[in-house]
Simulated scan of single mutants.
Amino acid sequence: MIPFVTLAGKRALITSGTRGAGAATVALFEELGARVLTTARTKPESLAASKFVAADLMRAEDGAVLAEAVRERLGGADIIIHMLGGSSSQAGGYAALSDAQWQQELALNLMPAVRLDRELVPEMVARGSGVVIHVSSIQRALPLPEATTAYAAAKAALSTYSKSLSKEVAPKGVRVASVAPGWIETEASVDLAKRLAAEHGADIEEGKRMIMDSLGGIPIGRPSKPEEVASLIAFLASDRAGTITGAEYVIDGGTIPTV
């Protein structure tokens, strides 16, 4: 029986694929038959060297090296999944953010996707086929002003860029979509829940509740699993989603309280 979703024969680049939702996406794409190349600054021991390129995508030169590796190892990309993102800005609201911190958030959350698309999407256009998925965040619409203003603004820029790119390349056979997760229960977020619990003399479930409360609550009562985010991405990348382009898909357990 043919599976509902297959990526058999597809060549995929997945950035930041060594942990969390990125690692889950790499694993699922391989399970569904794709040939995958992923990247991060450091290779985990469990990952084969042939499937990995060490790169700091905040540096333009490393993006160019990764794009060339995609051509050499895969012969090009049928699918690009931009998973890279995060925030290191301090708390304290807008006044605590320096120019350097603003540049840091844009350099991590926007520019790697812009550069890699500029390198690899023209080859998709030339073939008349391809899929690009940008992983944004619900914080583009629901920023937390105490600590994530710059991150949220950078993700909003990524979503807007994704929409613009889709309008340009869809007539040429290339689909572009974005995915906006809410809180994902990754190793890092579980560690945060443990720290919060320890600080308040509570258990880890209460630590998770504190995080959910900081987001205004999650109606479904729990964060998304990395595998759930990966499943959405895999569907959007597959031929089953053949007319989906220019749209953003939220996966947040109902966190955003408005239409």
Rank of each mutant, 00 (worst) to 15 (best):
P171Y: 10
G242K: 11
L196I: 15
K194H: 12
K172Y: 04
A152M: 11
S164G: 10
W183C: 03
A188S: 06
T160N: 05
E185C: 03
E187D: 13
S189R: 14
I184H: 08
K163Q: 08
G201T: 15
L192N: 12
R195N: 08
A156T: 07
V169P: 00
A177H: 05
E168K: 15
S164N: 11
W183A: 01
I211F: 01
G242H: 13
S238D: 09
G182S: 12
A198M: 03
K172G: 00
S178N: 10
R222L: 01
I233Y: 09
P219V: 02
H200M: 05
H200Y: 01
K167S: 13
V229T: 14
H200S: 14
I204C: 02
E168Q: 14
S166G: 12
K208V: 01
V176H: 03
D239F: 10
A234L: 10
E227Y: 07
R222G: 01
K194E: 09
V169C: 13
L215G: 05
R175T: 00
V169A: 14
G217L: 07
F235R: 09
L165C: 04
R209C: 04
S178M: 07
L232P: 02
D203L: 11
T243V: 15
D239R: 13
T160Y: 02
H200L: 03
G201F: 10
T243K: 12
I218D: 02
L165N: 02
M212E: 14
A156I: 01
A153C: 04
A237T: 13
P223F: 04
P223K: 00
A197S: 03
A152K: 08
P223V: 03
A157L: 12
A177L: 13
G221D: 05
I220F: 10
G216L: 05
A202E: 01
S231Q: 15
L215P: 04
E228R: 12
G207D: 12
L196D: 07
K167C: 14
A188E: 09
R175L: 09
V179I: 01
I204K: 10
W183P: 08
P181C: 13
G173W: 14
E168G: 14
R209Y: 00
A156N: 04
I204M: 06
E206C: 01
S231E: 11
M212F: 14
G217M: 04
A157F: 11
S166Y: 06
V179Q: 00
A170M: 05
R175A: 01
L165H: 06
P181M: 14
A188L: 09
E199D: 03
P181Y: 15
V179M: 00
G217R: 05
L232Q: 12
L158A: 12
I220E: 10
M212L: 10
G207K: 10
A198I: 03
Y151G: 08
I220H: 04
S164L: 08
G207L: 07
P226F: 00
G217Q: 02
